[in-house]
Amino acid sequence: MDLDRLAEQGYVIVPKFLAPEQCHELYQYATQLAPQDWQQAGIGRADQYTTNSAVRQDKIRWLQREVPYENAYLRMMDQLRVEINRYLFMGLFDYECHLAHYPPGAFYRKHLDAFKGRSNRILTTVFYLNPEWTEADGGQLVIYGDRGEVLETVLPEAGKLVVFLSDVFVHEVLAGQRDRYSITGWYRLNASIGGIVDPTR
């Protein structure tokens, strides 16, 4: 991963972060999960958590270390966290992530993943699992600049990783024509209070 580019512009797009075989295994795993393994995605945290289908329409599954396929991805992202800290001194403490499934027509309107001073989420990562995805399939991730200009329109192709500063870049997911799968995660700072990691505010 080009960490110089991440440092310079606040985001980086890595076209082939994982080998095709690994992507395919994760894709197969995601598509074979049962309906009860997913939950409707929401907005906000703790007391402010709510679902709003006018804003986002994806379903999610939080990754757990007890599940082999999920643990393998989490361990790989732990290694990336160490590399980022070593190179950029960002003080990233841990990582949380979920699978996301966007059925045909589903979207996620413009939003920020963190607000300055109100979250310990520092870096957002989005990894795509979708084989043979084309422009006609839609479902692009759009990243905006601070004046509302489009910086990037990212096709959610298998193997592609996007990393960006969580409290800087407004972004959205456009509606797609096919089932769309990704793994979205956040590197976080340590917000421990009284020995409790990341206590609910």
Rank of each mutant, 00 (worst) to 15 (best):
L80F: 09
L80G: 02
L80M: 13
L80S: 03
R81P: 10
V82P: 00
V82R: 11
I84V: 12
I84N: 02
N85V: 02
N85L: 07
N85E: 07
N85Y: 10
R86Q: 12
R86F: 05
Y87G: 00
Y87T: 01
Y87S: 07
Y87Q: 04
Y87P: 00
Y87W: 01
L88D: 11
L88H: 05
L88C: 01
L88M: 07
L88Q: 06
L88P: 07
F89C: 00
F89S: 03
F89P: 00
F89R: 02
F89V: 00
M90F: 02
G91L: 05
L92H: 12
L92I: 01
F93H: 14
F93L: 03
F93D: 15
D94K: 02
D94P: 01
D94N: 14
Y95S: 14
Y95G: 07
Y95F: 15
E96K: 02
E96A: 04
E96Y: 06
C97P: 06
C97Y: 06
H98Y: 05
H98I: 06
H98A: 10
L99H: 09
A100K: 10
H101S: 11
H101D: 03
H101E: 13
H101T: 00
H101V: 03
Y102K: 13
Y102W: 09
Y102S: 13
P103C: 00
P103S: 05
P103M: 03
P104W: 08
P104E: 12
P104G: 15
A106V: 06
A106E: 05
A106G: 09
F107M: 14
F107C: 07
F107K: 15
F107W: 11
Y108C: 14
Y108N: 09
Y108E: 10
R109T: 14
R109L: 14
R109E: 15
R109G: 15
R109A: 15
R109C: 09
